[in-house]
Design a protein around this nucleic acid. Structure first.
Length: 484
RNA sequence: GGGUCAGUAGCUCAGUUGGCAGAGCGGUGGACUCUUAAUCCACAGGUCGCGGGUUCAACUCCCGCCUGACCUACCA
C-alpha cells in the first residue's frame, strides 16, 4: 500500500464512502481558462472582482502552504491558477488536502483576483472532483520526454506537452482549410473503397485481408486513384478525397504504414493548372494559419510567396554533368558522365536521369520547388509533353528535400493503359506480386475519360513542413509501433 | 535489410577500474496563508529492458533476444 496507485485508489474508495462520487456525470463550466484571462486582463494587483466563474480541467500542479493552496488547472484552452484559503472555506481546504491529487479532473467555482506576483487567479469558493486520476503525472519540470512513451501513451503526451496538442490542432485547421479551398473551387468530396479486390493506383506492397461472407481476398488500398478517375468518367468534373492509404513497407521518419493522402482530379485541366492550384492552395493556407506566406520554424524558413520556384530535371541534370540538354539524351554519354559520381544498375535512360536527380539534387531542395520534366519511362500514367516526347506533363513538389505532392496530366488512352497494365503484370510476376490488375478501370477508360489532371498531396508530410516536425510520428496521433 | 546509440524508482537523469542501487521531481508524515520548479525536516519507493554466460562478486564484461531513436539501404 505504498505505491501511488494504491494511495490514490484508497482516496477514491474513501471518497465513495464519504458519499462523494469521484466520477461525476456532468459539470457545466460557464467559461474557460483563456476566456477568463482575456476578460480580466486589465485588473490590478490586489483587485478582486466579485463574480462567479466556473471552469473545469485537469489539476496539474499544487503548491501547499498549510493555510492556503495554489494550484493550476489546465483545460482545452490553457492553464489558469486557482487559490484556496482556509479563511474562505476551512472544510473545502481540508477536503482538498485529503482527497485531491495532481492529475485529477476538477471543477472550480469562484471569483477573480490578481495575486501579488501578478497572476490572474480564481479565488475558489467550491471545488468538485469530476474524475479521479489514479496514476501520478510525469514530472512537472522536465515533463514527458521519452519519445517511445510519448507515442505509446499519447494521452500522457498531450497532457504534459501542450505543443503536441498545438500540432494536432494545426493539423485539423490545415485539413479544414484544404476542404474549404477545394469545395469553393467546385471540387466534390467523395469517398472510395478502402477495401479493394485489386490494390491499384500505385506500386506498393499492400495489406491483405479476407471477407468471410464473400469468400474473397481483399486489400487495404494503396491509393484511391483508379476509383477517382472512374468518377471523372462518370461525369464528375472535379473530385477529391482525403483519406488513408495503407502500404505494407518500411517505417521511417517520413513513412508510416497508414498515412493520409489528398487526391484530386480536375477534368479539362492539365498539370500546369494543377501547379497553379497547388501554389495558390499553399500560399493561402500558409497565410491563413500563419498570417503571412513566409513561415519561420526555428532556423528553417519556408517561403510560399508566388510563384513557387520551378526547376526542370533535364536542365539541372545536364548542368550538373556539364553537358547540354541534347547531349543528355545520349544514353552512352550519360552513363560515361555519371561514372564515379553515382552507382546504378539500371539500363534505362529515364531511370538513370531521375535517379541522378533524386540522389544529387532533390535532397537539397529546401524551398518549396516544383520539379518538372520527368522522363517518360519513370511516369507510366502521365501524358507526354507535346513539344518533347521524351518527357511527361508531370510535376512533383519538394519541400525540405521531401516529396510532398505529385501530379500530372492523366493518361486517358485505354489502349495505352491496357498495354501498361500488361507490362506491370510482367514486372509484378518477377517481383512475386501476383495480384491481378484492375481491368475494369481500363473498361471505364474505354467509355472515354475527358482530358484530366490529377494530383496527390501527402497530408502528413505537408503538415510536417508546416509545423517543423522532423518525424512523421510527430504529426500522426497514433503512429505505428511494435507491441511493447 | 545493414550500421551506430539508448533502455536504471511513476517522471527526468547520475552510477568511476567489476565490489552495499543514487539524486531531483513526484509520493507519504510533519511545519508553513501570495506561491508558481514554493521552502524546510523526516520517511517510503528498484524485475538496473528480457534470457543466458564469465566471475568469489555483474547495472558494469561476453553472447542472444525485445523495444525505440538516428544514419543508411529499399521505396510511383
Amino acid at each position: 500500500m505504498s505505491d501511488e496507485y494504491s494511495i490514490r485508489s484508497k482516496k477514491l474508495r474513501d471518497l465513495v464512502e464519504a458519499g462523494s462520487d469521484p466520477y461525476k456525470n456532468f459539470y457545466t463550466p460557464n467559461t474557460n481558462a483563456k476566456e477568463v484571462k482575456d476578460k480580466y486582463q486589465k485588473i490590478q494587483v490586489g483587485e478582486h472582482i466579485d463574480t462567479s466563474i466556473k471552469v473545469s480541467g485537469r489539476l496539474i500542479t499544487i503548491r501547499d502552504f498549510g493555510g492556503s493552496v495554489f494550484f493550476h488547472i489546465q483545460d482545452h484552452t490553457e492553464k489558469i491558477q486557482c487559490f484556496l484559503e482556509k479563511k474562505q472555506n476551512p472544510e473545502l481546504l481540508e477536503f482538498f488536502k485529503k482527497y485531491v491529487d495532481s492529475g485529477d479532473i476538477v471543477g472550480v467555482e469562484g471569483s477573480i483576483f490578481r495575486t501579488k506576483k501578478g497572476e490572474i487567479t480564481i479565488y475558489v469558493r467550491s471545488l468538485k472532483i469530476l474524475a479521479k486520476c489514479l496514476h501520478p503525472l510525469p514530472e512537472k519540470w522536465h515533463g514527458l520526454r521519452d519519445v517511445e512513451t510519448r507515442y505509446r501513451y499519447r494521452y500522457l503526451d498531450l497532457i504534459m506537452n501542450p505543443e503536441v496538442k498545438d500540432i494536432f490542432t494545426r493539423r485539423s485547421k490545415i485539413i479544414n482549410f484544404i476542404r474549404n479551398f477545394l469545395s469553393e473551387r467546385g471540387f466534390v468530396e467523395v469517398e472510395t473503397p478502402y477495401l479493394q479486390p485489386v490494390p491499384s493506383g500505385a506500386l506498393a506492397k499492400p495489406f491483405k485481408t479476407y471477407h468471410n461472407e464473400l469468400e474473397m481476398n481483399l486489400f487495404l488500398r494503396i491509393a484511391p486513384e483508379l476509383y477517382l478517375k472512374r468518377l471523372i468518367v462518370g461525369g464528375f468534373d472535379r473530385v477529391f478525397e482525403i483519406g488513408k492509404n495503407f502500404r505494407n513497407e518500411g517505417i521511417t521518419s517520413y513513412h508510416n504504414p497508414e498515412f493520409t493522402m489528398l487526391e484530386l482530379y480536375q477534368s479539362y485541366a492539365n498539370y500546369e493548372d494543377l501547379m497553379k492550384l497547388t501554389e495558390e492552395l499553399l500560399y493561402n493556407l500558409c497565410k491563413t494559419i500563419n498570417g503571412e506566406p513566409i513561415l519561420k520554424l526555428g532556423e528553417k524558413v519556408v517561403n510560399f510567396s508566388l510563384p513557387l520556384k520551378r526547376i526542370s530535371i533535364p536542365e539541372k541534370v545536364a548542368e550538373s554533368l556539364g553537358i547540354s540538354k541534347e547531349e543528355l539524351k545520349d544514353l552512352k554519354l550519360l552513363k560515361e558522365k555519371i561514372k564515379g559520381k553515382m552507382e546504378t544498375d539500371s539500363e534505362d535512360w529515364g531511370e538513370i536521369v531521375l535517379e541522378y536527380f533524386e540522389e544529387k539534387i532533390a535532397d537539397s531542395l529546401d524551398e518549396p520547388t516544383f520539379v518538372v520534366d520527368f522522363p517518360v519511362s519513370t511516369s507510366p500514367l502521365a501524358k507526354r509533353k507535346s513539344d518533347d516526347q521524351d518527357y511527361t506533363e508531370r510535376f512533383e513538389l519538394y519541400i525540405f528535400g521531401m516529396e510532398v505532392a505529385n501530379g500530372f496530366s492523366e493518361l486517358n488512352d485505354p489502349i495505352d493503359q491496357r498495354k501498361r497494365f500488361e507490362e506491370q503484370m510482367k514486372v509484378r510476376k518477377t517481383r512475386e506480386l501476383l495480384e491481378d490488375m484492375d481491368w475494369d478501370f481500363v473498361k471505364a477508360l474505354e467509355y472515354g475519360m475527358p482530358p484530366t489532371a490529377g494530383e496527390g498531396i501527402g497530408i502528413d508530410r505537408l503538415i510536417m513542413t508546416l509545423t517543423g516536425a522532423s518525424s512523421i510520428k510527430e504529426v500522426i496521433l497514433f503512429p505505428a509501433m511494435k507491441p511493447d
